[in-house]
């Protein structure tokens, strides 16, 4: 089946069998290697992509299902200002150890920040933790990830008490 979608701002067309998952289309056909293969059953979040700006796991999406959608991976965010600030805070806070979960973690955090800034609502610490509950980090960097996200939010929306 022919499927058209936007990948990081570029229009792509692929011809796939209906049983092909988006994770495989991205990694094996389109060479997008930031999207990691993890549990392949929606538990770990390593294969997270943004579908129309919202995080989704690409292991439980058939490629045919994303026809007409906008798919974003970290490759598409290199020149995005907010994404740049987020990456900087991740590195300043050492919110990375082995790095396997990092691209997905960044995407979820980026989508979360975007939403908070659009609504101009300052999320609570619990909201931040809740937002990344679908991104498993076996190195256990969660406190550092939460700190990195918090610091971007503080810069934009004011200090946390």
């Amino acid at each position: 089946m022919r499927v058209n979608f936007t990948l990081n701002g570029n229009r792509v067309e692929v011809d796939v069998e209906p049983n092909e998952i988006l994770l495989d289309t991205l990694r094996l056909r389109l060479g997008v290697k930031s999207v990691k293969r993890g549990c392949e059953r929606g538990e770990c979040g390593a294969c997270t992509v943004l579908v129309n700006g919202k995080p989704a796991v690409s292991c439980l999406l058939l490629t045919v299902q994303v026809d007409g959608s906008e798919i974003t991976t970290v490759e598409g965010l290199y020149s995005d200002h907010l994404f740049g600030e987020l990456v900087e805070e991740f590195s300043k806070n050492f919110a990375v150890q082995c790095g396997y979960c990092t691209p997905a973690m960044l995407l979820t955090a980026y989508a979360f920040l975007n939403e908070a800034l659009r609504k101009l609502l300052k999320p609570s610490k619990e909201d931040i933790v809740k937002a990344i509950e679908g991104n498993l980090c076996r190195c256990g960097t969660y406190p550092r990830v939460v700190r990195a996200i918090t610091e971007v939010l503080e810069r934009k929306l004011g200090k946390y008490g």
Binding site: T48, V51, V57, F112, K130
Partner: peptide, 9 residues
């Protein structure tokens, strides 16, 4: 239920 990713789907 689920995670943010799962709830979006």
């Amino acid at each position: 239920m689920g995670s943010w990713q799962i709830r979006n789907m």
